[in-house]
Design a protein around this nucleic acid. Structure first.
Lengths: 341, 341
DNA sequence: ACTTGTTGTGTGAACGTTAACAAACGGGCT
DNA sequence: AGCCCGTTTGTTAACGTTCACACAACAAGT
């Protein structure tokens, strides 16, 4: 600071009266350093305000202490929360994180993202790869560097940490059936999203297990607008009493659907019950408050980092691990028993 | 790949029949390289799949090509969008980004975050520092490394890129007055947030300029819940006809407020008009669709990165720059003229 | 007294790049 | 021819760590 350059190990060594190697040992918590020496070194470090140069370190250790994250549309509540959880967990573990968030997912953009992270020589990679396509693209990279997929389905036998989408969908659907509804309709997410697919399967399985009719699926794209459009499509069936309960694949679409039903003068939950997925902060304050499935994104973040670090330390296990985080059902006013006609 | 290590410059040089320095020159687009030589080098790079080692490069250039970002609660729509914009802009400019997102902001956590980024020797720093406290903490670091604040108020004379909060608040308040409301109430964000303060000032200024009465401010914490509570507090005044228009400092609180008014059987916009701030994707599909102020977060991201890179390249200008991005009013069904009694 | 092992420390040599300088080459001038 | 100057290339030395090894000091066993 005072003199031109920032201090280096040799400066610390000189002040502490030891060799640079001893300083290195102190910094790396090597056991064989005498306590008094260690103290002198630490004092010198303190005095100079010394910080070790990570580039030099990375050069020789071939480890950058950086993890790469490929994410998609991080303004959505789910991905944003996952990212937040990942960042916290990585920092706690002493790793840096480098993020690429993509606007659109296809082989080209994912390929570029991986290139970008490869250029940084990340020690490991987390792919928030909720789309079939993306998961495949990431899977192709495996071998070069350890990869963990978040919400990644079973694509390509990668290690995966994911919320149990099937279970979540089952919770919501079961809940609606238990309230007495003859069947449950479904507004799904985009076909190429793994989470959408999981929720759709969980919903269908539950209906089939209960031996009830499976209504046609209405498909959306996660946006409130698409939920709104789905609502207009479902309105007629609701008025005719064919649709009395709807499980919507995320809360944003559920919000749009609520709007459409309101416009159609269909009451929730008296005429139609609605359940969503995600438990966004707004869910509790919609009209009516939304029954939904809550995901523990922070836990997903922690588990992902833990798994990735394990992969980095000890190499890949014999079997690609699949860690599942259980979701919980949050019951609110948007679901009730069907009207007794 | 095939042999143990990944290729280095010397390998490329050998294949191309030149010295490693020439390879370096090609990589750095040095002008004085013969075209044929350049082609041979590029071919060798291609053949080996060579990537340059950024740690080694950073070691000698003292530049990491990494920008640090300190953010706060990146699951909120605003910060998440800003982050997204920053990331895109940085990548386009050939920089990496390292993020720290904090759960709570105070001198300690911000200090730790800055330490963390300093350890990485970032070339520059972007602080999404929407709180007075945070802005101060970041400001203290200036001098070591170029810093740009996003939404940072005028704190400490730092260069700032921000949406014009005053103007946004003025647009919303003006709009409500123009509709014929006698005055406009306000649900504000937390006092220590600069954006909240800006919107509050813009609101107050507009009322005072119009020479109308300034109602008491109701304070929230950005959450839907606090908006809901604010709504319950305002309900009485609304019923009594004292409050016919409310400007809410963000859309999430507006959502909660809508819920509270609905419960109190107060109609929007017939009895009370509501305007929000942010234009979250949900705003259009609330009941009723929300009039709000839209911020161009992508633009803020681009401008911030541009300013920071400028600072890095050419050093600080004589004056701390302040770049302002204009917001726009989006008119929807939640605002209308007052009931004609 | 002599080995043997353990603990603490120092000495060089990497790691892979860029910076600084030097040198070879050629063309255009006196 | 001899000289100068710009272009192109090569050589050597950093950059600041960690790693591999050597070595000293000392304790404990034969």
């Amino acid at each position: 600071m005072t003199d031109g350059r920032s201090p280096v190990m040799a400066d610390v060594a000189r002040i502490a009266g030891v060799s640079h190697q001893t300083v290195s040992r102190v910094l790396n918590h090597h056991p064989n350093v005498k306590a008094t020496t260690r103290d002198r070194v630490l004092a010198a470090i303190e005095e100079l305000g010394y910080r070790r140069n990570l580039s030099a370190r990375a050069l020789v250790t071939r480890r950058t202490n950086t993890l790469g994250v490929v994410a998609f549309d991080t303004t959505l509540y789910g991905p944003a929360s996952t990212l937040f959880g990942l960042e916290q967990a990585a920092r706690d573990a002493g790793y840096f994180i480098s993020i690429v968030s993509l606007k659109t997912i296809n082989r080209k953009t994912v390929g570029e993202a991986l290139d970008y992270l490869a250029a940084q020589a990340v020690d490991g990679l987390i792919a928030i790869a909720p789309q079939v396509e993306a998961a495949a693209a990431v899977s192709a990279l495996r071998g070069t560097v350890p990869v963990v997929a978040v919400e990644g389905g079973e694509a390509g036998g990668m290690p995966v940490v994911a919320v149990d989408q099937l279970r979540g969908a089952e919770l919501a659907t079961r809940h609606l059936l238990d309230l007495g509804h003859r069947t449950v309709w479904h507004v799904a997410g985009p076909v190429d999203w793994l989470e959408a697919e999981g929720r759709r399967r969980g919903w269908r399985n539950t209906l089939e297990a209960a031996g009830v009719e499976v209504p046609p699926v209405v498909e959306g794209d996660w946006s409130p607008r698409s939920g709104y459009e789905a609502g207009r499509r479902i309105a007629d069936d609701a008025r005719a009493g064919r649709a009395t309960a709807v499980f919507v694949s995320n809360d944003q679409m559920a919000l749009g659907l609520l709007r459409a039903l309101h416009e159609a003068r269909i009451r929730v939950p008296q005429d139609v019950s609605i359940a969503g997925f995600d438990d966004i902060p707004e869910a509790e304050f919609l009209t009516p408050p939304l029954t939904t499935v809550r995901q523990d994104f922070a836990e997903v973040g922690r588990k992902s980092i833990a798994l990735l670090l394990d992969l980095i330390e000890s190499g890949p296990g014999p079997e690609a691990e699949r860690i599942v985080v259980p979701p919980t059902l949050v019951t609110r006013a948007s679901t009730a028993g069907p009207a007794t006609t």
